[in-house]
Amino acid sequence: MYQPQVGDSLDVLDTPAMIVDLALMEGNIASLMKRFRARNVQVRPHLKTVKSPDLALRLLAAGAIGGCVAKVSEAEVMVEGGIEDLLITTEIVGKPKLARLVDLLQAHPLIKVVVDSVVGARELNAAVGAAGLEANVLLDLNVGQNRCGATPGAEALDLARQIGDMEHLQLIGVQGYEGHLQHIHDQQERQQRCQQAMRALTETAEHLRTAGFPIQIVTTGGTGTAEFCADFDGITEVQPGSFVFMDTDYRNALGPVYSNALTILSTVISRPSPDCVIIDAGLKSLSTDSGMAEPKGLAQIAYQPKGDEHGALSWRNENAVGELPLQIGDRVELIPSHIDTTINLHDTYYAYRDGRIEAIWPVAARGKVQ
């Protein structure tokens, strides 16, 4: 089987294939970095979106100070690819995870982790202490998402004091992720609610400093809120990730701030009726947790999965009549509704410029959920 090479036309790709418009992606990265350069806030992009050390290195070259990852297994992939300054944004609990973390910290001491409980902090302290190490930790705060995180204020201060008594943990910052606000379509509401979350985060950080804790990092913010976060005094860094490629869910919330740079290339394989065609991209190619993908450049046509391997394209308006302008063998690009979960379905990025493949990147952290 022929393997696509740099320099090939996109026409050589078998489908479904995940393709990246380099001009659009580079524009997204440059635009975001420019927005934060003037705000005195650092960018630590969340790499759970791109899942690729190749892309992480591009983000570092553009001005990022490091990266975020969600899981220890993602951190293992990123450090192997040369990314050292990582924040693992999910609590690490249980002997298997702690053992893997200790192995990472022995070789990569810049890795930072979050804690939100005394139990978790004690287990972490014991694990790193047994290896003769120390771990830099951030206190994870619940700023409204009601997922993980200690309650801002007195509960957080009490937890910080207990962490302060643990010999092998160094409390250096706080994290508060307002994920529940990322996709609110009303900009004013998104901004107001984000400000409430930032107030809880920064006030707690200041209380901790007053109590004697050297809080250096106050980290927060996703693609939908990062600019609001950065305008709030006390925030030191933001964690956007989806901006690199975007998806329809973020586009619908933010408008045309960033471009949809990644699509899934598919092929029409059947035409059961004049107003419906079948493509070779189904549930194994496009995630649907945030809605349906959209055919690029075909605003009047809707996509619907028809099983693992198949998808249907038909008129978006059920009252529309006439033949679809698609024939068997035609190629169709689809814009994902949720970029992170769609990327996790694919092995390879094919990055192109002017219709020719310029780079091929493995999705090295695909499936890294531990």
Rank of each mutant, 00 (worst) to 15 (best):
L286V: 02
P325F: 09
S117H: 06
P240C: 00
G129E: 06
A226H: 01
L283K: 08
A293S: 10
C229W: 03
Q187L: 14
L208E: 03
L326R: 08
A23P: 02
D347N: 10
W361L: 05
T49V: 10
G329V: 13
M78W: 06
L60G: 00
S9C: 11
T202F: 04
M18R: 00
H46G: 02
I88C: 10
V277M: 07
L104K: 06
P272C: 01
G81R: 04
L254R: 08
L104V: 06
I235K: 01
I335G: 03
P325C: 03
G234R: 04
R122D: 11
Y2I: 14
Q300W: 13
E323L: 05
E76M: 15
D54I: 10
V332T: 06
P272A: 01
A130T: 12
S270L: 12
V69N: 04
A320L: 08
D233L: 15
C276K: 15
E189Y: 09
M1N: 10
G322L: 05
E333Y: 02
S117L: 06
D186Y: 12
H108Q: 05
L208K: 01
A64Q: 02
G144P: 02
N317W: 12
A154V: 14
L105D: 03
V118A: 12
L22E: 13
V118D: 15
M246C: 12
K306M: 12
N260T: 15
E80C: 06
A320H: 11
